[in-house]
Amino acid sequence: MNELLDTIVPPFDEPADWDDVLRRARARRAPRRLVLAAVVVGAALVVGPALGVLLTRDTTPRLPADADKRNVVVVVQPLTGRILVQAAPWKGHDGICYLMLSERAGCVPRTPRATLVLTSPITGYTFDERVVSGTALTLAGKRVPLQLVHFPKLAVTFFFRRGRLPLLFKEVALRDAAGHVVVRQVLRR
């Protein structure tokens, strides 16, 4: 058997070359580093834009996606042109979706007496259908009239202060047609 096998693969007598082994071992390490670098670069290319979008994304509130965008109403401060309120019917619900002062947004179900007041400047809404006028009371005790805008289709009334001067307020009072206060909200600081 050994003779037979010797004829098939004769013995080798070429000298050993350990240096070649070491060269090959080192040569394969470089591509691995290149692959690693390529992976890092690739990851940066993929993750970078996503991270950029994340970091630069406009995080200011927007009118909620559930708002019926075909029926948006807008309340504009007449003296400054600033959009104080955007509102629209809440799709699939009896209520509204709103964006006020570009800082607060949400969708709320219609409840007969629900009222929300924001400050700086005073802006708010009420579902109370009795409300026809309103005033805000400054810290100095002066009453300042509020301007009201009623949207029949949304069955909501928005109010805001007309003047430009920044004032500190401690209370908002909304009145019915008879002049009775039907909503009173103390403002917290």
Partner: peptide, 18 residues
Amino acid sequence: DRELGCDAVQEAFAKAVR
């Protein structure tokens, strides 16, 4: 193949070193 065999041994030892 003899040459393929020699090369395979060199590669195998290089892999073993790594």
